[in-house]
């Protein structure tokens, strides 16, 4: 049996999350095929063919895959699901959106957000905001899985998979993308960054967030993140949110500034290698997970930190 990994891409290149999903797939045992559905997506397909461990790339290129609608993607996967023991996607907002449809149409469970593969039918996944790890076994014929990207290394290059064209499935016509407002940033992407500077309500407003955290992020070549409170208050766009219901990150260094450390926030960052917390409240729960805690007013300590970094 083979494993089908659904690529996340922007037609021109693969999103890094796909590489983590390939690594998880490699632990399942079986030939790995990657499905690339898009519009004028030959470059993304070629990139997929170069990923180490990939045996075949299957490409469905049609205008109605441009928007990656859940309805159309799920229909395409279902039409091509025969022969696969596992169907895998990264647990990004994209994967979370369409893959449950695939599972339901196949009448199987979805195993969400796995962090480890114990056996081809047994997986570990976090529940209760990551406070509990459940080991679950699937009795279904096909295992439909989303992968927590931070739990698996990115697959490397070096593959030379065959590329095969797939017929597009019919356009459902049920959904139309009418707008897209993407956050523009020259910084590394949050989920792929080695260093993250993250700010919370303690920053007070969006101006402070910008004027204090951007120079620090610049010095460290870091991505910027935030707590829910900072996003809700409008300091930064929604896609900055780290946590149980935001992005899950695990950088080499996570610097939490003016963030109290609610369990929902910790759920998104506690697997970071080194955690630094800057908070004026010595009792803030964030200090319980921080490797290095600096008690102090962020309005003084953050500029001092920027200066100290030279």
């Amino acid at each position: 049996m083979a494993i089908l990994v659904i690529a996340e891409h922007d037609n021109a290149s693969l999103k890094p999350a796909t590489l983590n999903a390939v690594t998880a797939a490699a632990k399942l045992g079986g030939e790995i095929h990657v499905l690339v559905a898009g519009s004028a997506c030959a470059a993304a397909a070629e990139a997929a063919a170069k990923v180490a461990g990939v045996a075949k790339v299957r490409v469905a290129d049609a205008a109605h895959y441009a928007d990656q609608s859940a309805e159309n993607l799920a229909a395409l996967v279902i039409a091509n699901a025969t022969g696969y023991s596992h169907i895998v996607a990264p647990a990004t907002t994209g994967g979370k959106n369409f893959l449950p449809r695939v599972a339901a149409l196949l009448d199987v469970a979805q195993i969400s957000d796995i962090v480890a593969v114990e056996a081809a039918d047994t997986f570990v996944r976090p529940i209760y905001a990551g406070n509990v790890l459940a080991t679950v076994q699937s009795a279904d014929a096909v295992k439909v899985i989303t992968v927590r990207t931070t739990a698996f290394e990115a697959a490397g290059e070096g593959g030379s998979a065959a590329i095969e064209a797939l017929a597009a499935a019919a356009d459902s016509g049920q959904s139309k993308l009418t707008g897209r407002e993407m956050t523009k940033s020259a910084r590394p992407e949050l989920t792929a960054a080695k260093i993250i500077v993250s700010g919370g309500r303690g920053l007070g407003n969006g101006e402070n967030y910008k004027s204090l955290l951007e120079p620090l992020a610049d010095k460290l070549n870091a991505a910027l993140g935030a707590s829910r409170a900072a996003v809700d208050a409008g300091f930064v766009p929604n896609d900055y949110q780290v946590g149980q219901t935001g992005k899950i990150v695990a950088p080499q260094l996570y610097i939490a500034i003016g963030i109290s450390g609610a369990i929902q926030h910790l759920a998104g960052m506690k697997d970071s290698k080194v955690i630094v917390a800057i908070n004026k409240d010595p009792e803030a729960p964030i200090f319980q997970v921080a490797d290095y805690g600096l008690v102090g007013d962020l309005f003084e300590t953050v500029p001092a930190l920027v200066a100290a970094l030279g």
């Binding site: 199987v108 976090p126 406070n131 459940a134 997970v289 805690g293």
Partner: peptide, 23 residues
Amino acid sequence: PRLKTLKVAEPAKRSAGVKVADV
């Protein structure tokens, strides 16, 4: 149910770190 929970466990705790004196 299609999924059987074989076991649940608490994730490894991070050991509490240190407070640094200053920047």
